[in-house]
Amino acid sequence: MTRDEIFAKVVEIVKPFVKNEDALAAVTDDTNILEDLKVNSARLVDIILNFEDEFDIEVEDEDADAVNTVGDAVALILEKLS
């Protein structure tokens, strides 16, 4: 799976929880999931669990806490898949 494919999949997983559609339309690696996309903090739990299911990986709590931006999520998934 390429980085671009992972990025697209991450955006697809995050999308249902996004409150700021304008920020989603302009999403980049630097887009902050909580602050820019206005995802509720409790929903970040579901997003992490969906990453685990979609990519068949295990994300430790410590790793989950480090996911601030879309790029952080992509980098974490790439690392787990390597």
Binding site: N40, A42, V45, L49
Partner: peptide
Amino acid sequence: SESQPEALHSRF
């Protein structure tokens, strides 16, 4: 709607 039990991941 996001708070409802059915909206949560089964491992939440």
